[in-house]
Design a binder for these strands. Sequence first.
DNA 1: TCTGGGGTCCTAGGACCC
DNA 2: TCTGGGGTCCTAGGACCC
Length: 397
Amino acid sequence: MPDTRPRRIAHLDMDAFFASVELLSYPQLRGTPVVVGGAKAIVPDHGARFARLKEYSGRGVVTTSTYEARALGVFSGMGLMHSARLAPDAILLPARFDAYRDASRKFKAAVADIAPLIEDRGIDEIYIDLTDIPEATHPLIERIKTAVFAATGLTCSVGIAPNKLLAKICSDLNKPNGITVLTAADIPTRIWPLPASKINGIGKKTAERLQHLHISTIGELAQTPADLLIRRFGPHIGVWLHNAANGIDEHPVITWRAPKSISRETTFERDLHVRHDRAELSQQFTALCERLAQDLARKGYMGRSIGVKLRFADFRLLTREITCPQPICQAADLRRVASQCLKRIPFDTAAHQRIRLLGVRCGSLADGSHSAPSEEPDAARLPTSNTTTPQQGELAF
DNA sequence: TCTGGGGTCCTAGGACCC
DNA sequence: TCTGGGGTCCTAGGACCC
């Protein structure tokens, strides 16, 4: 017999996660605007004072901000130089990812003790399938929130609904430290008035395209005939938009999935010139390949497709990728294949001379946890040189 | 106001094979 | 010799998410 009970899915979202972790270390900053910035942010001196946003110089972005900073208009993803104009006296703290990962492990373990069916959605949020737990919703969620607080000292917001799509929307309706329970009957009154962009998967571009069709809210999207959406967005996205707006989502909570790719990238403190800064580019390129190899080794993976990513001074993005006959994981091999990718990049135009970001990626992953050194020479694992296209760029760092 | 780093999924064209 | 349809792999780019 198929199980026809409505599911009970929770989405748990930690409140201003990175900033809240920092406030545990600096409780004197509680109640003030605080911004957590990129790793290259200037470090607060260890004397009496903290760094202020207005003292920052560089290319970092806001990773998280406290609710007091958000009230001044400072949100995640915003350039720090920009946010300094909005909130010059806000405290700027450098991101400490090890501390956040530690807090993340703790809150997830605390939830898992109560409800083990968890889908990881990154460092600060999870879905939980509560369908098979007999306890009533409110006491169960209170118990989970109490356990999260006991394990971390941090609060979270939880949305509970019949599916992941609605649970995700809900967890945002009562922030911070809130609980929102939603049933299918609540959709017209509580979901339909919201902007379409509240649907996870409708970003800036799709929202703009919907706006051109005079669709602003989820309700307006729900009332749009499916065939119109299919004509405008294609069969896949069209059907998905129509279902999502009507609160339909059958995606199960996935407790584990194999990673598809592992990558490393870096934005330079200043744009590097393909020729004039070649030595530095080469050094950074090697370092990225070495870090990627370390990540692969630590996680026990090898990969067949190796790619590079470049962002130029004008912010345009370009990628190249090569698939090897056999998976590789050694830094020197990664560098060799990634170099071949670079040789296919046209560095001839002025716009392609100044590089802002360089990245190296490894995809088509295979288990590399017991990758004994190959009997074959390394060259056997790499694409043969006569399969590469004629060189476009004259250099490969 | 210039915009990090790590990911996922989708599309679309071409190669290649049956 | 020409034509076709389907399936899979590879590559590049784009939208989106945390």
